[in-house]
Simulated assay, not measured.
Amino acid sequence: MTPVKDAIARLPNKNLKVQLLFNNGISQNWRLGSKTIEELKKLPTIKQSLGQPIPKR
Rank of each mutant, 00 (worst) to 15 (best):
residue 9 A to H: 04
residue 5 K to F: 12
residue 24 N to V: 03
residue 47 K to G: 00
residue 2 T to C: 00
residue 26 I to K: 15
residue 15 N to L: 07
residue 11 L to M: 15
residue 51 G to L: 12
residue 12 P to G: 10
residue 12 P to L: 06
residue 36 T to M: 11
residue 27 S to C: 05
residue 9 A to T: 14
residue 3 P to A: 05
residue 17 K to H: 06
residue 46 I to L: 07
residue 17 K to W: 04
residue 20 L to R: 12
residue 44 P to T: 00
residue 10 R to E: 09
residue 40 L to P: 00
residue 41 K to R: 11
residue 8 I to G: 02
residue 14 K to R: 15
residue 40 L to D: 03
residue 8 I to P: 02
residue 38 E to M: 08
residue 3 P to S: 06
residue 29 N to G: 06
residue 55 P to G: 07
residue 46 I to Y: 01
residue 45 T to K: 09
residue 1 M to T: 15
residue 17 K to Q: 11
residue 53 P to I: 00
residue 25 G to Y: 05
residue 17 K to P: 01
residue 57 R to S: 10
residue 27 S to D: 11
residue 11 L to G: 02
residue 34 S to N: 12
residue 37 I to H: 04
residue 28 Q to I: 05
residue 18 V to Y: 02
residue 35 K to D: 08
residue 30 W to L: 15
residue 12 P to D: 15
residue 4 V to W: 04
residue 26 I to G: 07
residue 46 I to N: 01
residue 39 E to G: 00
residue 19 Q to I: 14
residue 18 V to E: 04
residue 52 Q to P: 01
residue 57 R to A: 09
residue 33 G to D: 15
residue 17 K to V: 09
residue 56 K to N: 14
residue 11 L to C: 08
residue 21 L to C: 09
residue 45 T to R: 08
residue 57 R to T: 06
residue 36 T to R: 03
residue 39 E to Y: 01
residue 46 I to K: 01
residue 24 N to W: 02
residue 1 M to E: 15
residue 35 K to I: 00
residue 30 W to Y: 15
residue 51 G to Y: 10
residue 36 T to E: 14
residue 4 V to E: 09
residue 1 M to R: 11
residue 50 L to M: 15
residue 16 L to D: 03
residue 20 L to T: 12
residue 50 L to S: 11
residue 16 L to R: 01
residue 7 A to T: 11
residue 8 I to R: 02
residue 44 P to E: 03
residue 37 I to A: 04
residue 56 K to L: 13
residue 22 F to T: 08
residue 49 S to I: 07
residue 20 L to N: 10
residue 5 K to Y: 12
residue 44 P to G: 01
residue 19 Q to G: 05
residue 49 S to D: 11
residue 22 F to Y: 11
residue 19 Q to M: 14
residue 41 K to F: 07
residue 28 Q to F: 04
residue 28 Q to P: 02
residue 11 L to H: 01
residue 29 N to I: 14
residue 42 K to H: 13
residue 14 K to H: 10
residue 42 K to V: 03
residue 32 L to T: 03
residue 9 A to V: 13
residue 54 I to L: 10
residue 32 L to R: 01
residue 12 P to M: 07
residue 4 V to G: 02
residue 27 S to V: 04
residue 35 K to G: 00
residue 9 A to K: 04
residue 41 K to C: 03
residue 45 T to M: 10
residue 1 M to V: 14
residue 15 N to T: 12
residue 30 W to P: 00
residue 39 E to L: 09
residue 28 Q to H: 10
residue 3 P to L: 03
residue 31 R to W: 09
residue 20 L to C: 12
residue 35 K to S: 08
residue 35 K to A: 10
residue 7 A to F: 14
residue 20 L to Q: 10
residue 37 I to G: 02
residue 36 T to H: 08
residue 45 T to C: 10
residue 20 L to V: 15
residue 22 F to L: 13
residue 34 S to R: 12
residue 40 L to C: 07
residue 5 K to P: 02
residue 52 Q to R: 13
residue 37 I to D: 00
residue 5 K to C: 09
residue 39 E to S: 06
residue 53 P to Q: 00
